[in-house]
Design a protein around this nucleic acid. Structure first.
Length: 596
RNA sequence: GCCGGCGUAGCUCAGUGGUAGAGCAGCUGAUUCGUAAUCAGCAGGUCGUAGGUUCAACCCCUAUCGCCGGCUCCA
């Protein structure tokens, strides 16, 4: 056996071992809760990333103040070292057991076990659960865990079902790993874009003025502008054309597009006199208007229309989350109109563009989903199933041709077509929806989007909806968290701070500032009457600090301090400018110090 | 939208059925300083909002808005 193969197998077995460990800990949690809160009914209790959860149905409400008692009881169960015993029973036997305990949810699960599968129970002590397993040998093997939170969760994830109480826990086989995990969670809180957004004065959301509506402050607006500028250049290079379209349109447009029937609950609808307008939740109908403004020839195709289009969606209140989930946001949207023959190549180049652009921002690790129609819910989609089959096959083929790893997600498609979704994965493994590429044979048919083919006949165009960054708000939030607010030089709203030591150097310092501004840098002069150490501390997240004291003034130089690295020495301003200019032009993401 | 928790100064937080507190930030003054917090003084809140209970509510109750953790949804 090759050593690689052996490693792979042992990694896999470690992973399985950890899953068993976590899932077994969930059983102990359920046992403890049932002991402490008689009458509690069980939902499900799987292992998840970093730990486990278990769902409970119980009149009284759990709160984290109950955790102390529950954890104590769990540790008692663990101390008894009760063996986990597997048994295969008949359906009747299982039904009898769960009926006796009033475990209605378990009975529901039991009824869903396929006929050709055996019914497996796991016991430890007096606790019994319907469960495929496997488990660790006995409760004594467990012990490194911590209950972390309690939250509501719908039974079987369906909002029409009753809501159960879910208790989450973290669990590892090693005490140090648990501590490390808890430390990382704390660390992640400090990188939270909502916290950094305020500290760095990037943006705010004012609840009085409207939840989910973002105010970009000067620093944030600058950052957004830099991203948009880069975005535009990349698109113009690739044959996209820029569009600018209205924010509202009469209802009739949205009836025609299908949004009024499939998307109404998310739309802001504005009555104006005896007419009705809709604040746009998507840009596509607007882009289609431009396409339809005259007859199109096959010679013009593909047409690629791009717009940083701001859209408004009435998201349900509980779903809002900083800039990750807002009600007004700017999509880096584009619509590609092409012939059926061009589809594959166009989708392929969009995938390439997405991979390229996201990499420039430091997102090298991506999750890719192929989002498909749920054939069981036809009423949620427009168009013929055969067209859907064809569309889905094209997307699948493109991903396979590029040897990209992807997951197929049933029921995740848009109402008008299947899509490829890219998730940004941050350093903690959290995923955020970024790019999306949606293939649409349906709207062109529905709205008569045609072109004149080479034979003079009218053909339906094929439409590709796509964004690369997703929404600027969400993208910037992910960017803030991925770099912890320490933006790479090319993106940093302020790139350089000039710090005079005493006011004797103010004149020279402002000249340095002006020279840097002339050289095209975004510069801040901190000439406040504060000590140097204080000023350095206040600007630790900036890529470069230039310190100017008596010596530098006399020599006409600057003392350069690089973020996370400290002093890198004094140099002539010109020297610094060419060094920094190169770093910015190359769009260097991490300097040595950043990787620390 | 649903479940739970929480809304006190710009921020982070303490507090109590009987006249609102700290640190940081802010302002004023002093200090002119060499690589992650100089000192002093001043100012700042109808305790999210609206009702109710009470002699008295920041505290108890109800509603509402919002935030946080999840669920559902999603760019």
């Amino acid at each position: 056996m090759s050593s690689e193969l052996r490693d792979e197998i042992s990694n896999k077995s470690d992973r399985l071992g950890l899953e068993e460990y976590r899932h077994s800990t969930a059983h102990v949690l359920a046992d403890a809760v049932k002991q402490l809160f008689p009458g509690t009914k069980l939902g499900i209790g799987p292992a998840i990333k970093n730990g486990f959860y278990y769902d409970f149905d119980q009149e009284s409400r759990f709160s984290d103040s109950d955790f102390v008692a529950i954890e104590k009881r769990m540790r008692e169960i663990i101390a008894k070292d009760l063996p986990f015993e597997r048994s295969v029973v008949s359906r009747e036997e299982a039904r009898r057991i769960f009926e006796a305990q009033g475990e209605s949810y378990k009975l529901e699960l039991l009824s869903k076990v396929p006929d050709d599968e055996e019914v497996v129970l796991y016991r430890h002590g007096d606790f019994v659960d319907l469960c495929r397993g496997p488990h660790v040998e006995s409760t004594g093997r467990l012990g490194v865990f911590k209950l972390t939170s309690v939250a509501g969760a719908y039974w079987l994830g369906d909002e029409h079902n009753p809501m159960l109480q879910r208790i989450y826990g973290a669990a590892f086989t090693d005490e140090r790993e648990l501590e490390e995990h808890l430390r990382l969670v704390e660390e992640a809180k400090k990188r939270d874009h909502r916290i950094l957004g305020r500290q760095l004065d990037l943006f705010s959301i004012d609840e009085e003025a409207g939840a989910g509506l973002v105010y970009w402050h000067p620093n944030g607006a600058m950052l957004k502008h830099i991203i948009e500028d880069f975005w535009l250049k990349e698109h113009l290079k690739r044959g996209y054309e820029l569009l600018s379209t209205p924010h509202i349109a009469k209802s009739s447009l949205w009836h025609a597009s299908g949004h009024y029937s499939y998307y109404k609950e998310n739309m802001y609808i504005l009555p104006v006199g005896n007419e009705e307008y809709v604040l746009k939740p998507m840009n596509c109908p607007m882009h289609l208007q431009v396409y339809r403004s005259r007859v199109r020839s096959y010679r013009e195709l593909p047409i690629r229309y791009a717009e940083l289009g701001t859209v408004y969606r009435r998201e349900r209140s509980g779903t809002l989350h900083g800039m990750f989930r807002v009600r007004g946001f700017t999509q880096d949207d584009a619509h590609i109109f092409c012939t059926p023959e061009q589809v594959e190549a166009e989708v392929g180049s969009v995938v390439d563009l997405a991979l390229h652009m996201l990499k420039v921002f430091g997102f090298e690790q991506l999750g890719i989903d192929l989002s498909l129609m749920d054939r069981g819910k036809r009423q949620d989609y427009i168009g013929d199933p055969e067209v859907w089959d064809r569309s889905e096959a094209i997307l699948r083929k493109v991903l396979q041709a590029k040897s990209l790893d992807f997951r197929e997600m049933l029921g995740e498609a848009a109402f008008y077509g299947p899509k490829i979704d890219f998730q940004l994965v941050d350093i903690y493994g959290h995923k955020q929806q970024g790019a999306t590429i949606q293939l649409d044979f349906n709207l062109p048919k529905r709205l008569d989007l045609d072109y004149i083919g080479s034979d003079g006949s009218e053909q339906h165009v094929v439409l590709i909806h796509r964004t690369i960054l997703g929404a600027l708000e969400r993208f910037v939030a992910a960017l803030i968290e991925s770099c912890g607010g320490a933006f790479p030089l090319w993106l940093s709203p302020k790139q350089i701070a000039v710090l005079p030591i005493t006011d004797t150097q103010h004149e020279f310092a402002s000249k340095v500032r002006d020279d840097l501004l002339d050289a095209g840098f975004r510069v801040l002069l901190d000439d406040r009457n504060e000590k140097l150490g204080f000023k350095i501390r206040e600007h630790t997240k900036l890529p470069y600090l230039l310190i100017i004291g008596k010596r530098e003034q006399a020599e006409g130089s600057v003392s350069v301090r690089r973020r996370f690295e400290g002093q890198i020495g004094a140099m002539k301003l010109d020297e610094f400018i060419s060094m920094a200019r190169e770093e910015a032009q190359k769009r260097v993401i991490f300097t040595e110090g950043d990787r620390r």
